[in-house]
Design a protein around this nucleic acid. Sequence first.
DNA 1: CTGAAAGCGCTTACAG
DNA 2: CTGAAAGCGCTTACAG
Lengths: 339, 339
Amino acid sequence: MKPVTIADVALHAKVSKSTVSQFLNKRYDYMGEKTKQRIEQAIKDLGYQPNYVARSLKQKSTKTIGVIVANILHNFSTEVSRAIEDACNEHGFHLIVCNADDNPEKEKKYMEMLRAKQVDGIIIFPTGGNKELYQKMLDEKYPVVFVDREVQGIPVSSIMLENKKAARLAVEHFIERGYKRIGIMTTSIIRNLSPRVERIEGYKEAMNDNGLPVQKEYMKSLDLEQIQDGMKSMLSLKEPPEAVVAGNDLALIEILKYVKQNRLKIPEDLAVIGIDDVSFASFYTPSITTVAQPTFEMGKKAADVLLTKISKKQGKDNLPDYRFEPQLMVRDSVGYRNG
Amino acid sequence: MKPVTIADVALHAKVSKSTVSQFLNKRYDYMGEKTKQRIEQAIKDLGYQPNYVARSLKQKSTKTIGVIVANILHNFSTEVSRAIEDACNEHGFHLIVCNADDNPEKEKKYMEMLRAKQVDGIIIFPTGGNKELYQKMLDEKYPVVFVDREVQGIPVSSIMLENKKAARLAVEHFIERGYKRIGIMTTSIIRNLSPRVERIEGYKEAMNDNGLPVQKEYMKSLDLEQIQDGMKSMLSLKEPPEAVVAGNDLALIEILKYVKQNRLKIPEDLAVIGIDDVSFASFYTPSITTVAQPTFEMGKKAADVLLTKISKKQGKDNLPDYRFEPQLMVRDSVGYRNG
DNA sequence: CTGAAAGCGCTTACAG
DNA sequence: CTGAAAGCGCTTACAG
């Protein structure tokens, strides 16, 4: 069962390989009507299917882009990836999605794999742990776009949320509802990931602007496994917070687990707002107030920026960063406090 | 910034391309030590990176497999895909995951795309709507494995859950807890997808075996958008069910939404068991009793079977179907009824 | 309007 | 122990 090639089609249709190739690429300009028909028939008869690998080798373009997400467990990653896929499909590009699992080693392996596979460009949710490689790609003028995070000292244009504003939206919603003792719990910031740092910064600014004290004990950044313990110690303070901002979806889930295990009531015992929408927000009991990212727009923008870079074969990364507006989704996990 | 090729390395190291290729493929058998070192140095100096596209063309193997899931929104799809990826990585294979979105047209497009890209084999969660194409791949002895579903008349080995048993587990758990009026709500069965049909069959058998009547009004199969209406009419019966089995995760979510909107209490007003585990099962209020699929094992098996087919280049699909055991995860969405 | 020839970057018998 | 040559399946100037 040898695969049929363009040569077989040519033979069958009694034309040359070149002509078949022209036909396949829809360059009909000067092609005779019956030539066309003969080729079409031959393709059908033989069940010919083109071999993209051969084409890619010759054209030096695979019409494929790579996406490396830092951690596929974030709802954000999945949604943005889907938006990227939609946008790419429209332009005839395919996608290979890889999960770095928050591990710079894996990220590196995937970057190398994708380049070896000759993808035309890469969209990275960077772990931040491969600066040399990011820089190398820049030096080689290889098309790259960052999503979610920026990396200090690597001038690649990045598609990000207005993270400060996201935290501010949460804090100010609490304040409007009469809350004053407001905490924030994020996942670990050891690698100084920009969204986490910025969200904490936004929290501080919003507290300050509203005349509320910024207390260390109310701000924790921990590995996922430690968040429940962290909640415990935060809520064991003499003056525990009455409300808490979850830095992302996974942090939110840990908080919800803690709340359930300790039979606390939301929002009576603890009000909660999560940054990042979660699948169950609307039908959880109580439904969860969140600050949503415009994942669809962000994914589309990432694809557009990358495709632009690819088509321009452009060298210097002179494209700006893009910041997107968070949106408060008011639900029932925040009550009313009369201060 | 021309990419550096094997020819450049050869020149730089003052050996032939063949020798460089031998080196890259670790066929050191007869290679002189200094030759090796010179090549190694040249690769470093030039920053050479191999081009898999060229290699694939020559070797007629891309070391890549395709996965087409019927609908990525099912938790099951995501988990199985990850398990497949892990298993493939161990064998040096890469993955391209596509989402058919329950649409046979898309599925077809992806099958063709993947084949054009010369993937070495495909794992399909079949929509069931492309029998001719499935059959064609079989005829061509192209390596394919099905997951989740089987397709009537297409003898491809398939990795599936013991669906009947899954439904039975749910029904019998209800019965043990004293429930008698038990319904089942699944997503649409217009295309006769095997898991849904089998789960309904298992429900009927379990009801029968336990001397309970099988009533049409207690069994509904609807499009997602209609499930809430379906619940409404089921619960408006003179003798409404006190317990309901959700045919899969998405059906479960619709039921939970309905329950919330109508301020029903689980399990007092309605007990619920979902087939398929969901991310929030353990920390939902109440936590949700589910029948979980062993997604990790299933994904691993799918990968193993496919990789076996690939390595054997084997023609006839003489491999059997594989059925996996569902597992009841007892939580709090089922109460105790004293009949 | 169509065909012959070169070449994309590799690998692989085979010769020496 | 290493190199010259052919070939994987395409595309693309170029010639006619």
